[in-house]
Write a protein that binds this DNA or RNA. Structure first.
Lengths: 248, 248
DNA sequence: CGCCTGCTCACTCGATCGGGGGACGGCCTG
DNA sequence: CAGGCCGTCCCCCGATCGAGTGAGCAGGCG
């Protein structure tokens, strides 16, 4: 894939862009926007982290647009892995939210740019060109949130683990037995969590952690206490005549 | 049942579609997909609920793609208002999540279709054609979640209000003074919430409410942690219409 | 008119939580 | 090596919570 000796044009060859996102419609939108620019070329797409890594190694794009939340392997991990093999990879993270933790981990993973999905097409193009030129691109809103929490202490791994159990509604005693430690230790962790997040209680701590990107609502495919009721499904389907389902 | 039921494409007038979404890139994606179909025509766009209502009255599209979460006025409310003036309006809700509450409120608001943003372009086209033909369109994953909670009791307006304060980390005593009631009443409400949501404690209740779409994490406005989703059933909706739940 | 629902309030009681203090070993880093 | 952070554990104690049980009052509806 060396075009270095192609000197027909003195104009720069187009910026080769790859997009990794599990939302096909958004990928279509990005493709449509990029198609209007003659100095930018969309060379490949991926819909999860593993695909993104493989596609990057194969296509070696100039700039990667990487969604933070993707199935199987998230964008942060994919970014880290790509940058480990290709330290000069230029990656722009796409996200819906402004969680500062995601932003921070994205940059520590090696991303140079950040884009909110609510941004306009001009922002997308500017971000691509800036990052391609070796600059960084950080939306004001994200920079502000990052700055606000710059001095905050980060939660440790164990604290995140405890917080996860807290979010599942478990008591300290239950968490303790799950983690193989004593309830007193759980209390110590929660005490630190409340202090670091400036939360008033465990519920508030979970909400703040969700807001700031420490945790995600992994609601897809209910895990813990949800039971299915096929009878209900049948009744509901028969109740809505003319309703069409797919992938039945 | 099979492809013989595929809709005719050489009809005289194309299906006139409007899309309302605050994510420009996704709108671009929808536009790009629709542009490939000669029986579908994208006639206008809107980026919030008010715009959607105004644009609908002006353009009278055949099918509306409406995002659930939009600034200023959400898609459910916009759908309800459009259907109040135009009972034959055909509206497909777009959403990121599978919260059953959103789905139910969308249908009680008058929507005929539901689409996850992670769906493929073929799903988008099928949904438009089916809804245009007067049928319903419900992804199986959403139908399943809806069916699971079909028999569940809905939270009342007061319970949602209490739950909101709980999510902000307030104690029962604080919630009581905020709502002008006694702590005992707050406890009674929370007791009902835990019972209805089958939650083990208040933290669990908040998480389940978020997962099921009773509430939404609002990450846009800094001072607001939580915003309400429109409520559960038609009864619920009529009950809560007078009281602005999303705080003020 | 009764019936049901939602909202309100009251009481007890045991379990849990949150805040305060301190302590110990392991690990990394300067 | 000293200092720091992390994870573990322990104490006390008041505040809070969740469960159980009961009840009164308003409004909608058959």
């Amino acid at each position: 894939m060396d075009m270095t000796h192609r000197l027909e044009r003195q104009t720069a060859r187009p910026i080769r862009v790859m997009v990794a996102d599990d939302h096909p419609l958004l990928v279509e939108g990005v493709a449509a926007v990029l198609a209007t620019q003659d100095d930018i070329e969309l060379v490949c797409k991926a819909c999860d982290g593993h695909e993104a890594i493989a596609s990057y190694e194969r296509e070696r794009p100039d700039v990667v647009l990487m969604d933070v939340q993707m199935p199987r392997l998230d964008g942060i991990a994919a970014t880290r892995q790509i940058r480990r093999h290709s330290p000069d990879a230029r990656i722009i993270m796409l996200t819906m939210y402004r969680g500062d933790v995601q932003a921070l981990s994205a940059f520590s993973a090696g991303a140079q740019g950040f884009l909110l999905k609510s941004m306009m097409r001009s922002d997308l193009l500017s971000a691509i060109r800036h990052v391609f030129a070796g600059k960084h691109w950080i939306p004001q809103s994200i920079a502000k949130v990052m700055a606000e929490h710059m001095t905050d202490e980060a939660l440790t791994g164990r604290e995140l683990q405890v917080l996860d159990h807290v979010a599942r509604g478990k008591t300290n005693k239950l968490i303790a037995s799950d983690l193989g430690i004593t309830p007193e230790t759980v209390k110590a962790h929660i005490k630190n969590i409340l202090l670091k997040l400036k939360a008033s209680d465990r519920t508030h701590a979970v909400i703040l952690a969700l807001r700031r990107g420490f945790m995600q609502l992994s609601l897809e495919d209910g895990d813990m206490d949800i039971e299915y009721a096929p009878a209900h499904t049948a009744r509901m389907l028969s109740a809505s005549r003319g309703t069409r389902l797919w992938r039945g």
